[in-house]
Amino acid sequence: MRYEAPKSLQGAVALLAGATGETRVLAGGTDLLVQMRADVVDPDLIVDIKKIPETRAITEDRGGWRIGAAVTGAELKEHPRLKQAWPGVVEAANLIGSTQVQGRATLGGNLCNGSPAADSVPALIAAGALATLAGPDGARDLPVEDVMLGPRKLALRRGEIVVSFWLPPRPPRSSDAYLRFIPRTEMDIAVVGAGVSLTLDNAGTISAARVSLGAVAPKVLLVPEAAHAIVGTRLDVAAQQRLEAAARAACRPIDDKRGTTEFRVDVAAVLTRRAALIALDRARTS
């Protein structure tokens, strides 16, 4: 098993594109090392991307924010201005694992591990984040909701890596929130996750919204019907009920010991409503 830690994107892409055999990108390793240990994967080449400066920076970019794919949860938490602009994205990333896991786990790894229950992904999708990719054919941007195709299936081409995420400019009176349900209070995998981002006009009416649900389908879902249910409203009770109905209708969950189908659908509706109310409250005071 080869290990390389290139210092440039070109170096990483050349290694990945030129390799024969199985390759894996290494960011925080909190999924990859567990999978290697369990013999689920046995790569011939590991490309550690943490020495590539573009993957490690948080910067302001075209009025929005750019977060390197290999920035850790702990580093996101320590960035007050990012947290102020995107509290939902940061709180979602900070739900991943323990303090120890936070010291290593990244947004890029959370997305590229390809789990429908990945906590930061609904928040990134609700935020309207773009994933910036680098590959043998150059760079391209993909909306985060288009990166994951199904469990462990990604739209990345051979040799392509996620370099960073771009979060769009934030109009005044905008905010976001992410909630998940787990059977414990810490250290568990989401049974349902719900991310909501919204903007209010001068009068306090919702002028734009995005809603995303995790762990209720083979991939994390963008749910436009749920956003339509609340745009043009002040999230009164009738709008909340329409939001819940739209969230329910979008769910196609599995049925297992951690949550029956019926339970997951109910929880999805409740969490979507609560996340929307938190985002609304934050937007009013932002």
Binding site: Y3, L26, G28, L33, G97, T99, Q100, V101, R104
Partner: peptide, 26 residues
Amino acid sequence: ASGDCGACSVMLDGRLVCSCLVLGCE
């Protein structure tokens, strides 16, 4: 050896991590 128990906790460049989830060469 899977990041769940914390018995392997060490500091790496001032950050708390599970040493079972870090490669030696890193």
